[in-house]
Amino acid sequence: MPYEILEKKELGRSGTIYEMVLRTPLIAKKAHAGNFVLLRVNETGERIPLTVADYDREKGTITLVIQVVGKSTKLICNQNVGDQILDVVGPLGNKIHIKRYKNPIVVIGGGVGIAPCFPQAKELRDAGNEIITILGARNKGLLIWKEKMKTVSDELIITTDDGSEGMKGVVTDPLKQIMQKRKISLVIAIGPLVMMKYVALTTNGLGDLPKVKTFVSLNTIMIDGTGMCGCCRFSTLEGDIQFACVDGPDVDGHIVDFDNLLKRAGRFLEQERDSMECYDEECRALEQLKKEVI
C-alpha cells in the first residue's frame, strides 16, 4: 500500500527543511503527540524514523517535517507531490501523557525539533494547560513553524545563536529566567542531543534552580521500531538499558546518559558519508542524462 505525498513545501530559508503531508488514513486515525513513523522511500531505502508532527483524522493525513542531514532524508525531500512512498509504519512509540498540570509547561523546540513540539503543545493546551514556548535555531533561516507554534502557546520566546531573530543566545537562557521567576510543572525539550542535554542539566535540581520534571525526545538510529533489534538502545545514568522505540521516544531527561548517546549517534558516520556521495553522484548523472535527452 504505497503512501502518496499530497503536499510539500520548504520551511525556513535554509533549503534543507521540508514539510510533507502524506496520505496514511489508518495511521492518521491512531496518531497522537509523541508518536513517530518509520519510513522507507523505495526498495533499496533504509528505514528512518520521523515524528508525526501533525495529523488530520478526517482527511486521513499525517504531516512530517524533515531536515536533510544525509542520504535518506535527502532522498525523501527529493520526492514531490504525487510521488509514492513505499513503506510507512506506525504510529510507533508511546504517546505522551496528557493531563492538567497545576503550573505552566515550558515547551522547548530546537531546529527541526520544533515540529514534534507542535502536537505535544497542542494536546497539552487543549487539556487546559498554560504553555510557554521557547524556540531555538542557529539562525533566522532555520527557524520553522513560528506562526503555527504561536497558535498553541500562551507565550512564545525565540532565541537564535547569531541574534538574527529574537534573543541572541541559546534556549537555556530564557528557560533559566522563567524558572527563577515562576513555578513550572513540566519541561518538554525536543531538538539536537546537545540542546536536550543542557536543558536536562538546567532542570535536574543539582544546580541552584529547582528540579522540574523534564521530557526529552530521543532520536537514536532505529530499524524495526518495535523493540526487536536493540539498535535504538540508550544507557541511563545508572547503567540500565532502555529502548527508545518502545520505552520512548519521550523519556525522563534526567535519567539519560547523553554523553554515551552522543557517541552512539556517530557510529555509522563513515558509511553515511559514502552513501551520500554515491547518491549525489547518481543525482548528478541523472541531471546530466536529462540535459542530454532535452
Partner: peptide, 9 residues
C-alpha cells in the same frame, strides 16, 4: 551497501 542504503559495520 551502498546499493542499498542501510549500513553495517
Amino acid at each position: 551497501f551502498p546499493k542499498y542504503d542501510t549500513p553495517v559495520k
